[in-house]
């Protein structure tokens, strides 16, 4: 196990390094993206532009720039080009929002996904199964931002049943926090509920046909017991994998669309603003932060997988 973890961590660091380098390369090729010109303002003098370029290290070879930037990121001194705010502290500031959004949505989509999947499997072929299947398919076919715009329009703008976007910190007012997040949670969860429900349904149906379930049936165990003890346990394993990866992606800035539509200033929103300003340092920060989560969670998932399914043990 230790060797396995060690290899994963090593791979993780390698992946992160390459990820950051790619982001860097993509952005140094942008023509007209010279941040010095923008910082110097509209009455800029040539000397001031050179001076800013020098200050930002933009006159260095690109690999030196990359190294400096990554170093600054890890020492927590990296600042944005557009307003010179500290990138790490801005990410920290966005984190409660993103965490609130993703944890809440995660609970909803995992809970409902499992519920829906099990109901559909147990009632396979019946009306409830068909209804769930149809809804799940529609759910996975909707662009998440469109659903968000629609919900916000119908429930917050046409009728003031929900707040019209925005975020209230949990520490400030828990009730308002909850109230403000209901729509974003639902928006983000819908797609996953549909997807998880469908995956779980087919997993359960597949498992039911496996030998050991048949054996259990033959031994005369109650159907409920078989379902919970044998079928669900096996069927949930792929769901755990999926959840780990999806949750990491959402946490790592993948909820950018939901955050944009509901004006939630989380990490994804920060990334979006940075891209709009062609502001490389925050983008670098968010990308690495996101990659970190994803790599971390995929490692965790592997570990959990090994724990849940005794048939698989990492070498």
């Amino acid at each position: 196990m230790a060797a396995f973890l060690f290899r994963r961590v090593l791979g993780m660091i390698l992946v992160l390094a390459v990820v950051s380098f790619i982001v860097y390369l993509v952005f140094i090729v942008i023509p007209g993206g010279d941040p010095a010109i923008r910082i110097a303002g509209r009455t800029a003098t040539q000397a001031n532009i050179f001076s800013i370029r020098h200050k930002l290290g933009l006159d260095q070879p690109f690999y030196v720039q990359w190294y400096d930037m990554v170093k600054a990121l890890f020492t927590g001194t990296l600042v944005s080009y557009s307003d010179q705010t500290n990138v790490v502290s801005q990410i920290w500031q966005g984190l409660p929002v993103t965490l609130s959004l993703s944890i809440g949505a995660g609970i909803i989509w995992l809970g409902f996904g499992v519920l829906v999947g099990v109901i559909a499997a147990v009632t396979a072929g019946k009306v409830s199964d068909r209804l769930i299947t149809v809804l799940a398919l529609i759910g996975v076919s909707m662009p998440v931002f469109w659903l968000g715009i629609l919900l916000r329009y119908a429930l917050a703008e046409q009728n003031s049943w929900f707040p019209d976007g925005g975020y209230v910190p949990l520490t400030q007012n828990p009730a308002q926090w909850f109230y403000h997040l209901i729509l974003p949670w639902l928006t983000l969860a819908v797609l996953f509920i549909g997807f998880y429900g469908r995956v779980l349904r087919s997993n359960v149906l597949d498992t039911i046909n496996e030998d050991y379930v048949r054996t259990a049936k033959a031994k005369g165990l109650s159907p409920r017991r078989i379902l919970v003890r044998h079928v669900l346990r096996t069927s949930l394993i792929p769901i755990v994998t999926l959840f780990g990866l999806d949750f990491a992606a959402v946490l790592g800035g993948g909820a950018i669309l939901t955050e944009t539509v509901y004006d939630l200033h989380g990490v994804g929103f920060y990334a979006r603003t940075a891209i709009g300003n062609l502001d490389l340092p925050p983008l670098m920060g968010v990308t690495l932060y996101g990659a970190l989560f994803i790599v971390l969670f995929s490692t965790l998932v592997d570990v959990a997988y090994a724990y849940l399914d005794p048939r698989i043990r990492p070498a």
Partner: peptide, 23 residues
Amino acid sequence: LNSPGIGFYSNIVGVDPCEKSPT
């Protein structure tokens, strides 16, 4: 600070060295 405002002061006597290397 490399302020975007320094262009406004170019008419002040003796400002040239500062314009040349602001920092």
